[in-house]
Design a protein around this nucleic acid. Structure first.
Length: 457
DNA sequence: TTTCAGTCAATAGG
DNA sequence: CCTATTGACTGAAA
């Protein structure tokens, strides 16, 4: 362990801040000659340009701290400037599929919130950006693909998909017309907007529904339980991610005015930095179709699902909800005009129902506010911290905002100064409200055990 | 077990 | 073609 020198050179490789400054040209040693004696890796699955002796993982491990936002921004620029698609880029440079690349470029998570694995793509991107021939290489790939494509077309005259079924052998579908072919492949569930709405509402009541609640939701919405579970998982993490980007952008916001960010470029002093900023605890209000600006009443009682401080599960089904098709019964117990369910087509395929759920449009009407009420009951003062302003009292480790604003003095980036001013208001509020709920949830959870937990909200 | 972080891959829009 | 969205899956923590 040691080898501080090699680290240094590697660091340069992955560094994003201005590369200039070096008296020696160096550029990039084809291979550093100093693999930090580490056990071998499962080998990179990617062709990865095929050089570099070091595995990315090693690079990632010693990578300095990259500005993910800045990196993605530059990558996007380069790609668009050269008409390179993210599919090509993803597959050849990152080893990821197009969708993943799109996601990554659009919503990079801040470096410190990334796992080792999650950092990998960013290191690769940085490496790629540093490569003087990056564009050229990709263009070559593009040409090659095209060539291959043309070739294929040419060779196969009027042949339709020569070798299509790559299946393992479980397939006897070769018939003739790929029409209503057997759907051996699951059709991919697509939730209807109404269903999503219902789920979101449920999420706001309870970001972490109990299995029982999930089961109920599934029944009421006529979805598979696993679908509901997955939905919650996905929704939670996607909400979380949006909060991250918000965090990032906040850091690079340069409000009109002269002062640019103080840029307190400091190191990571934190043993496990957790900068968080909760932002004012605003009451929540939710949007709704119609433009009814719901004021945030401190709820009246439509808390429903959650009742007992401890485990509210029991209050959930005093009645009987045998029948599916909850036209309006929704959650038993304290109904309050709440309705989680919505009429939907009969179970099991059968596309009959001509009318796609007529009502359900704006069922809610106000109870969303329950957002906070719900669980707050027990938690002492922990959760909400007064009004707003939370000038961190503790020496919160790590600066709340890193300053990715600066740009290297490269000719390229001279042109881009897209700076986007935020102009969002509504959706954000909602997200925050939901986020609060999850915070509460965690507090509750933690309340039952004693452990110095560190939270990041 | 459950949650989470990363991804994949189908698919909806352009 | 290309990109964005999103349900589902995988593997690793807890």
């Amino acid at each position: 362990m040691s080898s501080s020198e090699s680290v240094k050179s590697l660091t340069e490789l992955v560094q994003q801040p201005c590369p200039a400054i070096e008296t020696s040209k160096e550029g990039k040693p084809p291979e550093p000659s100093d693999p930090p004696a580490s056990d071998s890796q499962p080998t990179t699955p990617l062709p990865l340009s095929g050089h570099s002796a070091l595995s990315i993982q090693e690079l990632v491990a010693m990578s300095p701290e990259l500005d993910t936002y800045g990196i993605t921004k530059r990558v996007k620029e380069v790609l668009t400037d050269n008409n390179l698609g993210q599919r090509l880029f993803g597959e050849t440079i990152l080893g990821l599929t197009q969708g993943s690349v799109s996601d990554l470029l659009a919503r990079p998570k801040p470096w410190h919130k990334l796992s080792l694995k999650g950092r990998e793509p960013f290191v690769r991107m940085q490496l790629w950006l540093n490569d003087p021939n990056n564009v050229e290489k990709l263009m070559d790939m593009k040409r090659m693909e095209k060539k291959a494509y043309m070739k294929r077309r040419h060779s196969s005259v009027s042949d339709s998909q020569p070798c299509e079924p790559p299946s393992v052998g479980i397939d006897y579908s070769q018939g003739a017309s790929p029409q209503p072919q057997h759907q051996l492949k699951k059709p991919r569930v697509v939730l209807a907007p109404e269903e999503k709405e219902a789920l979101k509402r449920a999420y706001q009541q309870k970001p972490y529904p109990s299995p029982k609640t999930i089961e109920e939701l599934a029944t009421q919405l006529n979805l598979k339980t696993s679908t509901v579970i997955n939905w919650f998982h996905n929704y939670r993490s996607r909400i979380r991610r949006e909060l991250f980007i918000e965090e990032i952008q906040a850091g690079s916001q340069g409000q009109a005015g002269a002062s640019d960010s103080p840029s307190a470029r400091s190191g990571r002093i934190a043993p496990s930095s957790e900068g968080d900023s909760c932002d004012g605890v605003e009451a929540a209000d939710v949007e709704e179709p119609g433009g009814t600006t719901v004021a945030t009443k401190s709820q009246g009682g439509p808390a429903e699902v959650a009742a007992a401080p401890a485990d509210q599960e029991e209050a959930t089904q005093p009645a009987e909800k045998a029948k599916a098709q909850p036209l309006s019964s929704a959650t038993p117990g304290q109904d309050n005009g709440e309705d989680v369910g919505q009429p939907r087509p009969p179970p099991e395929g059968l596309t009959d129902t001509p009318a796609p759920v007529p009502n359900l449009a704006a069922p809610a009407a106000g109870e969303d506010a329950a957002t906070s009420a719900t669980a707050a009951t027990e938690v002492p003062g922990a959760a909400r911290a007064g009004p707003a302003e939370r000038s961190s009292a503790l020496p919160s480790t790590s600066a709340p905002a890193n300053a990715p604003a600066r740009r290297p003095s490269s000719l390229q980036s001279l042109f881009g100064l897209p700076e986007a001013a935020g102009a969002r208001d509504n959706p954000v509020r909602k997200k925050k409200a939901a986020n609060l709920n999850s915070i509460i949830h965690r507090l509750e959870k933690a309340a039952s055990r004693e452990e110095p937990i560190e939270w990041e909200f």
